[in-house]
C-alpha cells in the first residue's frame, strides 16, 4: 500500500514475506513507487520476516534505478531476521536502512533543508 507522508515522501508499506508466491506483485509495487513524482521513497518492511533471493534482487535494482533517476529509496522497519540477511548481502553499503519509518522521514526532512 502506497501512502504519502509529510507532503512529498512516498511510503510503500509491504506487509508480508516476499516469496515466489507474491514476487511479481512486489515487483509491480516497487515499479509503481519508483514512477511516483516524489524524490523521496521509503520501503517499510515492518511485517516482513523473509525475503527470497529474487526479492533481494528487486530491492537492489530499485535502489539503483532510483539513484539513476535522481531519487532516493531507503528501507525502514527491518526485522532481526531480515537484518541478518541484509548484513550478509551487504545492502548497507549502498542503501540507507532505518529502524523506524519516522527516522527515515526525519532523514529526508533534513536533506530537504540542505
Amino acid at each position: 500500500m502506497l501512502k504519502t507522508v509529510n507532503g512529498s515522501i512516498q511510503v510503500l508499506e509491504w506487509k508480508e514475506n516476499i516469496t515466489l508466491k507474491n514476487i511479481e506483485l512486489f515487483r509491480q509495487e516497487m515499479n509503481n513507487i519508483l514512477t511516483q513524482d516524489s524524490q523521496h521513497l521509503i520501503l517499510n518492511l515492518a511485517e516482513t520476516s523473509y525475503i527470497n533471493s529474487a526479492g533481494l534482487g528487486i530491492i537492489a535494482e530499485s535502489v539503483v534505478q532510483a539513484k539513476r533517476n535522481k531519487k532516493e529509496l531507503v528501507l525502514s522497519n527491518i526485522e532481526e531476521s531480515i537484518n541478518e540477511i541484509f548484513s550478509i548481502v551487504k545492502f548497507s553499503s549502498f542503501m540507507k536502512l532505518f529502524d523506524l519509518e519516522a527516522e527515515a522521514i526525519e532523514y529526508f526532512k533534513a536533506s530537504q533543508h540542505d
Binding site: 533481494l56 534482487g57 537492489a60 539503483v64 550478509i88 548481502v89 551487504k90 545492502f91 549502498f94
Partner: peptide, 15 residues
C-alpha cells in the same frame, strides 16, 4: 570471515 561486497550481478560497479 565476512569482508567483501554485495552479491555479484546486482550492481554494475562494486567496491
Amino acid at each position: 570471515l565476512a569482508d567483501g561486497t554485495v552479491p555479484l550481478g546486482m550492481l554494475k560497479n562494486i567496491e
